[in-house]
Amino acid sequence: MLELNGISSGYGETQVLYGLTLSAGSGRVTAILGRNGAGKTTTLKTIMGLLPVRDGEIRLEGHKLNGKAPFQIAAAGIGYVPETRDIFASLTVRENLELAASRGRSGAWTMDTVVDLFPRLGERMSNGGQQLSGGEQQMLAMARALLLNPALLILDEPTEGLAPIIVKLIHDKLQELRNAGQSIILVEQNFGFATALADDVAVVGKGQVVWTGTPDQIRNDAEVQHTWLGV
């Protein structure tokens, strides 16, 4: 589904990715793991066109994404939930969702179906974004991305700063999406959370993919965990 071949990218004069190669399969959850500063978020921003591709090629379902603007990449079928969530704090929950729905592709995800997935949002429709808890903001960011009816959903650190009970809720909702066949790329520091959801795991270190395998393989590889994850 998504192929990154020899990607180099970074910020200004600072290069972060060095020939990174990664693939994410259709209908599968691909977890990207690595230490802080390894290049995980840079990889996602490069996929989304928020950082330029200096070298290499990115393809979604065979179509080249290099050089496209972020809105064009979203329209091509990628829903992105950044670590910062980036909801519109001055808008209500309903307005945040309606804005996304008006720009989305046709598909199964509608205002009604995202509220079915996240009932709490249905109770908070008239509340402003700034009135939501961290967990509610994460639900809203995910619901907004789903309203684009993406072929691929990308999430950057969805459990960051959330209470354990909310982490469990987010896990359950992602498991529902996984069971429904949604293709997902998940960047996550929580090793147990990520490996419980993933079909495939890629470890990023020093701007490159240094290991790939299954959740069971990485759970049983203490050397990889210690060297590249600090677990």
Rank of each mutant, 00 (worst) to 15 (best):
I73L: 08
F193L: 11
G161K: 12
T14G: 02
L177N: 09
M48Q: 06
V209A: 12
V53S: 06
G34P: 03
G122N: 13
G205E: 14
F88T: 07
D199P: 01
R94L: 15
N127Q: 15
M111H: 09
G6V: 01
L140K: 05
E13F: 06
E83K: 08
P52M: 10
L99N: 06
G181L: 05
T14K: 15
R28L: 11
K173V: 01
N220L: 11
R144T: 06
V204S: 04
V81Y: 01
L17A: 12
L60I: 08
I7W: 05
G6S: 13
A69M: 13
W109N: 09
N127M: 14
T110Y: 08
A222H: 12
L140I: 06
R144H: 06
L44W: 01
R94S: 13
G62P: 09
I170N: 04
S23A: 12
G25I: 00
I165A: 14
L174C: 04
E95R: 10
T195V: 14
G34H: 07
P215K: 15
P82S: 11
T41V: 07
G135M: 12
E13W: 00
E95D: 13
G77P: 04
S102P: 00
G62I: 11
L174Y: 03
L153V: 10
I78Y: 01
L140W: 07
T92W: 03
L162R: 07
T43A: 10
H63P: 00
Q175S: 14
P158K: 07
T42Q: 13
I166S: 08
G27K: 09
V29L: 11
E176G: 01
T195G: 05
V167W: 04
P164I: 10
A141K: 06
A198R: 02
Q137T: 02
G62V: 12
V187Y: 02
S126L: 00
T195A: 07
E136H: 07
S126N: 15
P70T: 12
H226W: 02
L162W: 03
L99R: 06
D116S: 14
D116Y: 02
Y18K: 15
W228K: 01
P119F: 13
Y11H: 13
G161S: 13
G56R: 06
Q137H: 00
Q175Y: 04
V204A: 05
V224E: 05
H226E: 15
L50D: 03
R144Q: 12
T30D: 05
L2P: 00
N66K: 13
N179G: 01
T227C: 00
P164Y: 08
G37C: 12
A100F: 02
L117M: 14
M48R: 04
